[in-house]
Write a protein that binds this DNA or RNA. Sequence first.
DNA 1: GTCGGTTTGTGGAAGGTTCCAATTTCACGG
DNA 2: CCGTGAAATTGGAACCTTCCACAAACCGAC
Lengths: 331, 331
Amino acid sequence: MDVANLSGVSKSTVSNVIRGAGRVSDATRRRVLDSIEALGYRPNALARDLVRRRANTVGVMVGDLANTFYAGLVKLLEVEASDAAYTTMVCNTDGELALERARVETLLERAVVGVVLLQFSGDRMVLDALRGAQVPAVVVSCHDERVDCVAVDDRAGMSAAVEHLYDLGHRAIAHVSGHLVEDSTRAARAAGYEAAMRKHGLPPRLLSADDWENGDPGAVRRLHELVSGNAGLTAFAAGNDVMAVRLIDQLEAGGLRVPEDVSVIGFDGIELGAHSRIGLTTISQPREELTTRGLELLLDRVRGGSVAAPPRCVTLEPRLIVRHSTAAPRA
Amino acid sequence: MDVANLSGVSKSTVSNVIRGAGRVSDATRRRVLDSIEALGYRPNALARDLVRRRANTVGVMVGDLANTFYAGLVKLLEVEASDAAYTTMVCNTDGELALERARVETLLERAVVGVVLLQFSGDRMVLDALRGAQVPAVVVSCHDERVDCVAVDDRAGMSAAVEHLYDLGHRAIAHVSGHLVEDSTRAARAAGYEAAMRKHGLPPRLLSADDWENGDPGAVRRLHELVSGNAGLTAFAAGNDVMAVRLIDQLEAGGLRVPEDVSVIGFDGIELGAHSRIGLTTISQPREELTTRGLELLLDRVRGGSVAAPPRCVTLEPRLIVRHSTAAPRA
DNA sequence: GTCGGTTTGTGGAAGGTTCCAATTTCACGG
DNA sequence: CCGTGAAATTGGAACCTTCCACAAACCGAC
């Protein structure tokens, strides 16, 4: 080590100075610091991590980083993690199981201290790999009893969405979900929808957004027929805001008006939903709390080394925000 | 190494099998593979990277990951990088110089092979650090003659935006920029705006979006007065789509209609702009080409080791997309 | 001076790979 | 059988830290 030579001390002392550990006299410290400066020396994190057998990195797996809700979460995670002196490794899985597994392997090879799972598929192999490597994980914004998780009560949230529509007078309400990312959130929301519908003795109707989002004109036509045809749908409870916003686009492109002809409610509370042109009624999730608590749970285990302790789940309350994409159905 | 013992070979052979390098007989290979499987062995990337003196990671620095345009770029980069067998380390700088410098240091300590700079401030120290460490960098979606870069011609793009407004009949056109992230893009767009205004002998008028975006009611009032008062502004050329969309929100919240009372044009071409409710006229950037070419330039240097070769700049053509946020001014 | 005790500094093993030169094994022609 | 060259395998140094037990230096007090 050149720094050691230049300042005439051993590499151990240099290490002590850099780590701020051990006792080093002020004179020596300054000398070493000067040499570091003069040589433009930069510590090698790879070597440090190798001997420590863990990188100061937390992995973040996300289904679709282009979904603004998750991009927001990732940003918060990155910022909060680096406040806690961890770097972040972001992996996009595109909702594909194979990719998810592969990426977790990559993260594990890189010896991350922990992994945040966003839009987690719930795959057992992923969880097993993590557990096997003694790497703690936290699922954020999905529920999963097998690991730490912090999420909104998706089921209740979606039920509340349906109740909101019901209260407005809607009876023919469809649920719209996509299949790009199949996480537990998706299922929970669908379940919340079905439960609420059943409670009121209404027939559930599940639609897939993929049909029309791929720009298939036939699908778009079918969508419109659901509203103007016999089905007589008067409201849609979308699985998330991004889908809701696109749905409004599709509906209006076909001449239907929201909320005059048909109501749409979303889920997540993306910023854009508040735009006056959109005015999306939605079930909003507390983003910052989600990430803060999530990272808290994760780092707790990282520091305590208590990987094996039973999972703790934090459930947050989603909040109905009524804007102007929902209204009473036409008489 | 346990795998070596179990399969009765040396660790070198195990290494050869894993790397797919050197010549290994089929029988041995199978034996080693079986042991790996049986032991659930996972190679240690830290050790590998240490001896190779480089991690198979590309760093990505972004000013604001919550800006959907950049989130989209980051996603594309992540996907393309991992197709090329690189992992990605994403750093959010919040447009703060100190953070930018600190993060570049972090990336360098982790021995990334290269860095993609999104919304780069242009800071000399960052560039010097990179060069000093022999780590290639590419600036994407900003121009910078000191490094490889691929970007749209922001200046020309913004001039085209002004021309579009001018052709519609607008004369009192303001440019709106934010200050959260001060990259070269921001300056180039402002310059393009000013050049176009000057060309037509019109007085430039520069506004900062920060004023009203912070929810300062006074600022919002002043914004409205610019339109309805003496200034008589009839159009805004926003520095980017996100600002444009928010601007529309602010204007309409105050009772002005877009485009009837005032026109707004954006820049970037975010997906949302295409929404029928928004219909943002904009100067669109080819996102995928930006990232693909950018990564190409970067990996080219990584593989060739030609860090010192003169910088190459790729300039792409932005494209005017006319939707319905711009129209002729009221007579 | 010498002796404890504290503070400061050090030597070297360990961490898990890669990579290369060197060695062993193998197959085959003579 | 031997010799030969190619193919397969191996040993060990190197990568750059951390960390710990230990050594040295220093400081009063006796």
